[in-house]
Design a protein around this nucleic acid. Sequence first.
DNA 1: TTTGTTTTGGAATGAACGTTCCAATATTAT
DNA 2: ATAATATTGGAACGTTCATTCCAAAACAAA
Lengths: 195, 195
Amino acid sequence: MPKTKQFDEALVLQKARDVFWKKGYNATSMDDLVQATGLSRSSIYDTFTDKHGLYVQALQQYQEFQRVGLTSDMPKGLSPRKKIEWLFNKSISASMADPDRKGCFMLNSTTELANMDPRISKEAVKNLEMMELLFLSWIKEGQASGEISKKFTAKAIAHHLNSSFNGLKLVAQTKPDKDALRDIAKISLSVLDPD
Amino acid sequence: MPKTKQFDEALVLQKARDVFWKKGYNATSMDDLVQATGLSRSSIYDTFTDKHGLYVQALQQYQEFQRVGLTSDMPKGLSPRKKIEWLFNKSISASMADPDRKGCFMLNSTTELANMDPRISKEAVKNLEMMELLFLSWIKEGQASGEISKKFTAKAIAHHLNSSFNGLKLVAQTKPDKDALRDIAKISLSVLDPD
DNA sequence: TTTGTTTTGGAATGAACGTTCCAATATTAT
DNA sequence: ATAATATTGGAACGTTCATTCCAAAACAAA
């Protein structure tokens, strides 16, 4: 009997995410979101509770897309070291290809909101820890095979890669210079070289 | 004959900066700024034109303070390598000591505003280039004395340090774990080691 | 003290904000 | 077709926003 939902929730989240991503949370108005999604205010509030709820869900979808994209987009059969290199290079390409210089949505959310908004802080920490575990597993594997240096502990290297990955994205957002970004990736990853 | 200004402009900028730093540009209201500075709306608008003008001046003051603090706070007579270490360690201490987790004001400004606001983007790039030149001079000096490896060009290492420095600050803002931050500094700077 | 000028507090303004609300609409099961 | 129910568009609400404005106050020079 009931009328069925007229829109695809995941698609709406993507559109909302793009606006939030480009303008930030506070600079995005509900009018912007109504325009971008094509939905009416009623439908947005009915589905996502409020602006904050919509933002959180958009951010979660982004993080899930990123996480899934990591393994699905990556060529199969790469060695641990090559996986890391592929990830850094993909980030460089993405930064250089974005005419809006939006940077990383998770990173932007962290700096704009995390210190005042525990809900966002939680997502940021969760994402950081997910990346750390991913790096950690690759590094351990690489150290076991001898592809990655054992001069530092796997955990310490994972911390370093996490930081480097963020630094790379930040520099790319500030001044997208491909040569500089290549330098950064090259030197950041040089600590993986076995002796 | 005229009445003289009743307040110290630099002090007002500091107070405004602290609010902007903690809450971000868009989440800070003029009411917040009136309260924090103790000035009336008239005085603020008369002196700084508008909210945006006040923000830009606060950001410029911050960047100038940072730049000057680099050389004035640093112990004299350090070797290039030790200067870099001191800088990274100082950043770690600052992050761990801030109960508000505000992060770096320049970095926050960049991610919140730079892609939509050319004025802010200009400041961000200027700051990035200033840091790059600083690192570059230290690295060249260290490479000349043999304290720093010549395996990479000074410019490439400068790019790397710039990125690492930003990555460190971002991780510290997301999850201030002293051991992890120490790992990051240690490994990021290990590329300086001569063979 | 008086004069000339600037600063200042605080009220006022109009636009924009997030959110609520409801009548009209659309859809499915009967 | 009809009934039942959820969705929808858009008007309306009260707040908060950045900014303007002006009379009153404060100060320096005469």
